[in-house]
């Protein structure tokens, strides 16, 4: 259901500046790729604009945007063709330095996006698994399954038995 709404460009831009850094942190934690994380934040802000009427109150933007960003991140697909604006901007950001724990980094990247999302949200951001389920859009048991499979995979990868 699309809604015609008055354009509040200044307020929207202020929200972009206030929230995008935190959203990038969440998206990067899941994706471990700067460009994909930036795409996830971009998609999030585009959807935020469409739902701007429900998001004008700053106090409830953070949690809602984080949830949208998580969902965008776990459905991220690396684009086959670069966006037009990439060519326009001429700025393709490099990846950060390699993680000091390459074995764990390799194992983490082999997890599914849903598994990475649950591990990150639960262990780093402190959400309960029920809350993780709501954030990624599944039933609680499914989120628990993602976590269990992820931990089992990482332990095996890192030879923790």
């Amino acid at each position: 259901m699309a809604h015609e709404q008055p354009v509040d460009a200044a307020g929207f831009d202020a929200a972009v500046h206030a929230e995008s850094g935190r959203l990038f942190a969440v998206a990067y934690s899941i994706l471990r790729d700067v460009q994909e994380a930036e795409d996830a934040v971009q998609d999030t802000m585009e959807q935020a604009w469409h739902s701007w009427g429900a998001l004008r109150d700053p106090s409830k933007r953070g949690a809602w945007l984080r949830q949208i960003c998580v969902r965008r991140a776990i459905r991220s697909r690396r684009r086959l063709l670069p966006r037009l604006w990439l060519a326009e901007s001429g700025t393709v950001q490099g990846q950060p330095a390699s993680d000091p724990d390459p074995d764990l980094d390799r194992g983490y990247r082999r997890l599914t996006p849903q598994q990475r999302a649950v591990v990150t949200l639960h262990y780093e951001y402190g959400y309960t698994l029920d809350e993780c389920a709501s954030l990624i859009g599944c039933q609680p048991g499914t989120a628990r399954s993602h976590l269990a499979r992820a931990l089992a995979s990482l332990r095996k990868e890192l030879n923790y038995g």
Partner: peptide
């Protein structure tokens, strides 16, 4: 070990010019 790894990921700063690009694209997207 896992906790440290995840914290490093969540502490990774956004690349330079990130916010400006997001805002500019959002305006274009509108």
């Amino acid at each position: 070990r896992l906790k440290s790894y995840l914290h490093r990921g969540a502490s990774t700063p956004a690349p330079a010019g990130f916010e400006a690009r997001i805002a500019a694209r959002a305006r274009r997207q509108r």
